[in-house]
């Protein structure tokens, strides 16, 4: 039986079609600015880490994260930078560090934890670190934080 008709995008004929982009406010920055911002932040994070300032590094990278379409390179760079911070933080420092973040930064951090867990092949490399942070973050910010990650259309 021919089932190709199932693949026809019938929504395109709907005048009132609700697009994914209608559901959140777009990033005011254009994609090239977002990428240069991400690169700048990555560099700032590296120098902060070299000084042992994990708190400052985390604040820098979680501020105004890239989201929306067309900024995949900036998203990947930011994710790698976040994981770099997570990996270089001593496990005893994790909880005080999370507690010092405001709730917006906590939500953003949770987004990156889930994104990291979703990357193919990352489980073996940084799985235990991500899960450790996830546990600590859930203790501080609660299940509401996880719900917000699932709800928010501004995916990182």
């Amino acid at each position: 039986m021919d089932t190709a008709f199932r693949k026809i995008d019938i929504d395109q004929y709907d005048e009132d079609l609700l697009l994914e982009t209608d559901l959140y406010d777009p990033d005011p920055r254009d994609p090239s600015t977002v990428l240069s911002d991400a690169k700048q932040k990555a560099a700032a994070v590296r120098s902060a880490l070299a000084k042992g300032d994990n708190h400052g590094a985390l604040l820098t990278i979680l501020d105004q994260p890239p989201y929306g379409p067309g900024v995949d390179e900036a998203k990947n760079l930011t994710l790698q930078t976040v994981v770099l911070i997570l990996n270089s933080t001593k496990s005893t420092d994790v909880q005080p560090l999370i507690k010092s973040l405001d709730s917006t930064a906590q939500d953003t951090l949770m987004k990156y934890l889930y994104k990291g867990m979703g990357m193919p092949g990352w489980g073996e490399v940084s799985g235990s670190v991500l899960l450790g942070w996830h546990e600590k973050l859930t203790e501080v910010a609660g299940t509401g934080c996880i719900v917000r990650v699932m709800t928010d259309r501004r995916t990182v």
């Binding site: 709730s103 939500d107 910010a141 609660g142 299940t143 509401g144 934080c145 719900v147 917000r148 709800t151």
Partner: peptide, 14 residues
């Protein structure tokens, strides 16, 4: 038109 919004984030389910 510059409405003020206060958002209170919960730590539990919605």
């Amino acid at each position: 038109g510059a409405h003020g919004l206060i958002n209170i984030k919960g730590s539990t389910l919605p």
